[in-house]
C-alpha cells in the first residue's frame, strides 16, 4: 500500500497504490485522514469512535470517491478522524464498512470535498497493483 501527495495549483493531488481493491479503500481513508491531521493514522492504534458506512455507485471509481466523501462527512459531523476500516461487505460497486477513529479538537487541513476529477481506479498491468489519483478540494 503506497500513498503519495503531489502538487496541484490550488488543491491536493493524492496517488494511491494497493495490492487489492479493498486495500485501495483502506489507503484512501488513511491518506485522507493523514491530510486532515498530519500523520495521525501513522501513530494511533486505539480508537474510541465507530461508524458504519454503506455506499453504492455505478463503478469502482465512483464507489471509492463516494465512500471517501462519506468518511469526510462523518469526520466533520462528528469532529472525528477515522483511521481504521473494517470492511463488512465488498461487492461489485457496493461497500459496507465500519470506520474507527478518535475525536479531535482541531484539523491541520480543511478538505472541502473529495473530487471525481482525475480519479480512475484501475489495475496496473505492469505492477499488478490497483491505483488511482484523487484530488481533494481544499
Amino acid at each position: 500500500m503506497k500513498i503519495r501527495y503531489l502538487p496541484h495549483t490550488a488543491d491536493v493531488r493524492m496517488l494511491l497504490e494497493a495490492e487489492s481493491l479493498q486495500k485501495l479503500f483502506v489507503a484512501g481513508t488513511k491518506g485522507m485522514s493523514n491530510l486532515l491531521k498530519e500523520g495521525i493514522c501513522d501513530h494511533t492504534f486505539i480508537f474510541h469512535r465507530k461508524t458504519t458506512i454503506k455506499t453504492s455507485a455505478s463503478d469502482f471509481t465512483n464507489l471509492l470517491i463516494d465512500f471517501l466523501s462519506d468518511v469526510l462527512s462523518h469526520t466533520y459531523a462528528n469532529n472525528t478522524i477515522y483511521c481504521k476500516i473494517n470492511i463488512l461487505s465488498f461487492k461489485k460497486y457496493g461497500i459496507v464498512a465500519e470506520i474507527f477513529g478518535n475525536e479531535i479538537n482541531e484539523f491541520d487541513e480543511e478538505i472541502k470535498a473529495v473530487t471525481y476529477h482525475e480519479a480512475n481506479v484501475v489495475k496496473n498491468a505492469e505492477s499488478n497493483l490497483w491505483e488511482t489519483c484523487i484530488i481533494f478540494d481544499i
Binding site: L6, P7, T9, A10, D11, I138
Partner: peptide
C-alpha cells in the same frame, strides 16, 4: 488567482 501549488 493562484500560480503556485500550496506545496510549492
Amino acid at each position: 488567482g493562484r500560480r503556485l501549488s500550496r506545496t510549492a
